[in-house]
Design a protein around this nucleic acid. Structure first.
Lengths: 234, 234
DNA sequence: AAACACTTTTTTGTATGCAAATTGGATTTT
DNA sequence: AAAATCCAATTTGCATACAAAAAAGTGTTT
């Protein structure tokens, strides 16, 4: 099927003059994070390139980029697959994320401005509102934003970047999590405590709270991973 | 210049059947870590590809991979450069490395076998020997090996991978570090304490020691960065 | 001479072509 | 029928070709 070779007139030209392979990176990342490309899906270069409206070259470059992040795995002479969501891997990731968030919390307690804390408080109340209404998706969104904001307050771009890369793995699992009301309430309570520690700028306590919070999140993800499909990869 | 199109008969076929872009990744990484490609060097694709005996395609894929690690930076429509060694960035990296090593130390205290500890002790004495002789390069090598071994003992591959990626940045700076005897002795003493904590499986103490050790290393690197060339990048 | 415009050259970014490897299937063999 | 073997069809990996952009000259104007 000879696809039209019209070179331009795509979305990128509107927004800004970004490079094609950069847009391909973010498109691919989104597809993976949103679960449109399920774990262990084989990435057929020809098909994907066509789907993203590009050629194989920028696609392959994007795949290499994401492979370095660990979102896809390279199989020599056999292309690439979306990284599996193995429970063992999730455990590892959460342990590291716990340490990174703890560090961020500690730094944030020192560096956050009052305005930063006010913003986190605002996000917190938004989150509470959605929790009260039982709206899971927006709850997750504000939840994420709070954690990201804490990261920003830490004022360490490298930390934020590493965190973001690892978090991408986990995000995929979060969409399948079906919170029980009990666990949900507990998570919210933990957030209350976290906000309190931040306001009091008690870095040591916030560290501990964040580590525990992440550990609890791991439990949730593990449960979600165990339930939905038969076995989540070998 | 029409280079011969002989397809095979190169080094790769001897050693093992690795993929070309993979060998290019490690070659490039080595060139950068060893300082053969200095920070902020522009990566001319044509020249580099020829130097590495390949075409631009695998080279570009390797560059994208390393860009994700942060070892090179992509400039839209202007190629890529070796990531700068800015003091600010170094500070950030060391803070994160400190947290990661601390975590590894804590985990290692729980998971290391007696054989593991014996191996670390052995590496430690090798290191002491080279310290005694004032041999910097082998000292660094054993030093690195100890830290890597602790990472391995932690039993968290994700942690090890993230650590390794960040460590690559720092390694570049380490080669320019000119240890004063005083500082060197101090670093060795810290290692003595670390080994002691590990033997006693005192995770909390090892965590603290590692964090401090990294903080001290940062000071060294900062000094090295300040001295050799006029200004280390903008 | 400095600033500007214009042209040439180089370099990057993307698409395509081709060879080697893998995959899937048909045929043969046990 | 199951296993093995061979062949065709994909698919990947690498090299090259081509187009757009940036860099480097070149000359012109002020």
């Amino acid at each position: 099927m000879p696809v039209a070779t019209t070179p331009v007139a795509d979305i990128t030209s509107l927004a800004e003059h970004r490079l094609l392979h950069e847009t391909v990176i973010s498109q691919l990342r989104d597809l993976i994070e949103q679960g449109d490309l399920a774990p262990e899906t084989k990435l057929n270069e020809r098909v994907l390139a066509e789907k993203l409206g590009t050629s194989r070259t920028p696609l392959r470059e994007a795949i290499k980029f994401l492979a370095s992040e660990g979102l896809v795995e390279l199989l020599p002479n056999r292309g690439a697959v979306v990284a599996a969501l193995k429970p063992e891997k999730m455990k590892e990731v959460f342990v590291v994320l716990g340490a990174l968030e703890a560090l961020a919390g500690d730094l944030a307690c020192r560096n956050a401005t009052e305005a930063d804390i006010a913003e986190i408080r605002a996000l917190h109340y938004h989150m509470l509102a959605h929790h009260a209404r039982g709206e899971l998706a927006p709850y997750f969104r504000y939840n994420q934003q709070i954690h990201i904001k804490i990261m920003e307050c830490a004022g360490n771009a490298t930390l934020a970047q590493v965190y973001s890369g690892l978090n991408a793995h986990v995000k995929r699992a979060r969409y399948m999590a079906n919170l029980s009301r009990e666990r949900w309430d507990k998570a919210v309570k933990e957030h209350e405590e976290m906000l309190d520690a931040l306001v009091k700028r008690d870095g040591t306590r916030l560290q501990m709270l964040l580590r525990d919070h992440l550990a609890n999140k791991l439990v949730l993800v593990m449960e979600a991973l165990a339930l939905p499909r038969a076995g989540p990869a070998r």
